[in-house]
């Protein structure tokens, strides 16, 4: 009898030990994006002499502001198990709409409202199609919207690029506050607002719930469809804001603006550790994800590596992030079974 009890106690100890080491691994995975970012900055800092300079860091922040803005909205959509690839074309549409409405001769600050409004409309259409249209594939819906919105941008502009931008928008994209790029500061404030909404309001918790298990959400009585639509609407709005920053940085309204930015946005969210299975991720990690992309781009550029390589590096980054997400699910399952074994011993 005694030996039996001894064996049971010992195996329980090893189970606890294994569980604890798995928990540490899980924590490391969650802290992954900041660890990667710091490692990259240090590595490029050592390799490229001018990488850690005020000027370059300012540049890096200003460049990543657009992807950050896109990433914030994209994160909400990915959180509820969707994806929105139409955001790149929303940049183009918002830019040419502003140019068409306010003209380029007298660009006014009135434009500030139009960018996000254009995005909101596209986002609402996306959400409506996915929720009410009964199409279970958000990817395909937003691919279709990508084509439609890009086409409308060409139609509005007649294919022409209009040079000029309102001074307020120009300042937001290029100005500095205490040495910090104004665009980056604006996105940071926006991120703070998103964090508050996601982590401290009922809406935010419900959004995580819908992403975690849409069926249980409906069964519990959460307004599932409205929640999903709100995610797409906000994603469109942040794409409009990204369009504003894009317009300010380029100083001209081209119907071909923002091509390829949807990939950067999705990459930022995924590299930031959000799960494509839904229900997981954090706003701060999305910012880190966007900074990781900008760091890789800028760092390789400083090292005189062909920019073609940065696209390869970022692609590999996505794949690694996805595999880490699968690994995370696996570890969680292990912890659960070890817990159950321990309880039933």
């Amino acid at each position: 009898m005694e030996t039996q009890a001894g064996i049971a106690g010992k195996s329980s100890d090893t189970v606890t030990g294994r569980r604890d080491s798995l928990s540490v691994l899980l924590w490391l995975l969650q802290a992954g994006p900041i660890i990667i970012l710091v490692t990259l900055v240090v590595a490029f800092g050592l390799l490229a002499p001018h990488f850690i300079s005020v000027r370059n860091l300012q540049n890096l922040l200003a460049q990543s502001a657009i992807v950050c803005a896109l990433g914030l909205g994209q994160f909400l959509v990915i959180l509820v198990r969707g994806v929105d690839v139409s955001v790149g074309s929303v940049i183009a549409l918002s830019v040419v709409t502003v140019a068409a409405v306010t003209g380029v001769d007298q660009p006014t600050s009135f434009a500030l409202v139009i960018y996000p409004l254009v995005g909101l409309v596209v986002g609402l259409i996306n959400g409506l199609l996915i929720v009410k249209g009964g199409i279970p594939q958000p990817l395909v819906v937003t691919v279709a919207m990508l084509g439609i919105v890009a086409g409308v941008a060409l139609l509005i502009s007649g294919g022409n690029t209009l040079v000029g931008v309102s001074p307020a928008v120009h300042w937001l994209a290029n100005g500095k506050v205490l040495g910090i790029p104004a665009g980056a500061l604006m996105v940071l404030i926006l991120a703070g607002l998103f964090w508050l909404m996601l982590r401290r309001t009922q809406w935010g918790r419900w959004l995580y719930a819908v992403g975690g298990n849409p069926d249980v959400a409906q069964w519990v009585g959460l307004p599932r469809d409205t929640l999903i639509m709100s995610a797409y609407a906000i994603c469109g709005t942040t794409a409009g804001i990204a369009g504003m920053l894009y317009h300010g940085r380029t100083g001209s309204a081209s119907p071909l603006s923002g091509i390829g930015y949807e990939l950067d946005a999705i990459t930022a969210v995924v590299v930031g550790g959000a799960s494509l299975f839904g229900g997981r991720g954090s706003i701060t990690n999305v910012l880190f994800g966007a900074l990781i992309i900008a760091t890789i781009r800028s760092g390789l550029q400083q090292l005189d590596v062909s920019p073609f390589w940065s696209s390869v590096a970022i692609g590999i980054g996505i794949l690694v992030a996805l595999e880490l997400d699968v690994l995370r699910k696996h570890i969680e399952n292990r912890i659960r079974t070890l817990r159950a074994r321990q309880v039933n011993q």
Partner: peptide, 21 residues
């Protein structure tokens, strides 16, 4: 099979849909 949200905490699950704001 329709019991809990895996990604939420215990008390979040306990109160879901009935939170006071």
């Amino acid at each position: 099979d329709l019991a809990v949200f895996d990604n939420l905490t215990v008390s979040d699950n306990f109160l879901i849909g009935r939170e006071q704001t």
